[in-house]
C-alpha cells in the first residue's frame, strides 16, 4: 500500500514479559502492511524530534487493527509504551520492503530477543501459505520470553543464555541446517555475525531484518545507510530486510 501519515488509538496494552509491552491499535485509516514492514511512530503532542521505527508485530486482516511489541530502550520507545488507553499515536507507513514470502516450503525463523517482534505477523502469513515452519527463539533469561503465538504445527525451539528455560545457549549454536528452503532472521547484528560465520552456505537463502537510526523513513535523508554488495543502501527503503550474502554485517 502507499505510505501515509495517520493516527491510531491505543485499545489494549499488556506487559507480556520483563520490560516488554504488547500494544494494540485501531487505525484511523485502512492499512495493508506486509510482514517485516515497519512504521515510524511518535506521540502527537510532546513528540520526540524524530519518530522511531517500530516493526509491525501483528496485523489483523480487517485493515484496521495491528499490534506493536516493544522493549523500550530510549526516550522514543518509552514515550510509546507510556501512551494511555484511548490516546492516539501518529504513524508513518507502512515502510520498507518486508520479508519475501514462499509457498508450501520448509522454512525456519530465528529470533534473538526483541527481534521476535515482526515474527507473529510473518508466522501467520507463512502458515497461510502452507509452509512447514520451525522457530528458533532465544532470550537472555526466561523472564524476557514473550508468550509467543502458538500456531498448530509450528515447531518452537526455545533458548536462554542462562538456561533458565529451554536449552542453555543461543539459537545459532543449536541451529540445524535441516533442508530449509528459506530462513528468516531478526535480532541483534551480533547474532547475524555469528550466523554468517557458522552457516556461510546458507546465506543466499537467509533473509535478515536490519536496524538503523532513522529520520525520514522513506529514503530521502540518506541517514540509515548499510553496505550491500559494496554499495550504500538505505535500511528504511531498500530494507529493512536484506539477503544475508549481500550485506556487510557490522
Amino acid at each position: 500500500m502507499v505510505k501515509k501519515v495517520f493516527s491510531a488509538v491505543l485499545i489494549e496494552k499488556k506487559r507480556v514479559a520483563e520490560d516488554t509491552y504488547l500494544l494494540k491499535f485501531n487505525s484511523s485509516i485502512s492499512i495493508s502492511p506486509k510482514p517485516g514492514q515497519f512504521f515510524l511512530v511518535s506521540r502527537e503532542v510532546n513528540r520526540t524530534f524524530l519518530k522511531r521505527p517500530i516493526s509491525i508485530h501483528y496485523y489483523y486482516a480487517d485493515h484496521r487493527h495491528f499490534k506493536l511489541l516493544i522493549r523500550p530502550k530510549g526516550k522514543g520507545t518509552k514515550d510509546i509504551i507510556n501512551v494511555k488507553f484511548g490516546e492516539k499515536l501518529e504513524f508513518v507507513g507502512p515502510l520498507g520492503n518486508g520479508f519475501p514470502l514462499v509457498k508450501n516450503k520448509k522454512v525456519a525463523l530465528i529470533a534473538g530477543g526483541i527481534g521476535y517482534a515482526p515474527f507473529a505477523f510473518l508466522l501467520r502469513e507463512l502458515k497461510n501459505h502452507g509452509n512447514d515452519i520451525d522457530v528458533y527463539y532465544g532470550e537472555k533469561d526466561k523472564k524476557y520470553l514473550v508468550e509467543y503465538w502458538r500456531i498448530n504445527g509450528v515447531k518452537y525451539n526455545i533458548f536462554t543464555d542462562n538456561g533458565s528455560f529451554g536449552k542453555k545457549g543461543n539459537p545459532i549454536e543449536y541451529f540445524l541446517q535441516g533442508n530449509y528452503h528459506r530462513i528468516y532472521l531478526c535480532g541483534p547484528e551480533i547474532m547475524y555475525k555469528s550466523y554468517k560465520e557458522n552457516f556461510p552456505e546458507l546465506l543466499n537463502i537467509s533473509y535478515a531484518s536490519f536496524e538503523r537510526r532513522m529520520a525520514c523513513g522513506i529514503g530521502a535523508c540518506k541517514g540509515c545507510s548499510i553496505m550491500v554488495n559494496g554499495q550504500f543502501k538505505y535500511v528504511c527503503k531498500d530494507g529493512p530486510v536484506f539477503r544475508m550474502d549481500d550485506v556487510e554485517i557490522l
Partner: peptide, 23 residues
C-alpha cells in the same frame, strides 16, 4: 559521493545531528 561511513544520524534534545556527507 557515496556519503560517510559509520553513524549518520542522532537525535538530540530539540533537534538532531547528521553526518550524511552529501551522498
Amino acid at each position: 559521493r557515496l556519503g560517510n561511513i559509520g553513524n549518520r544520524l542522532l537525535e538530540i534534545p530539540c533537534g538532531m545531528m547528521n553526518s550524511i556527507g552529501l551522498a
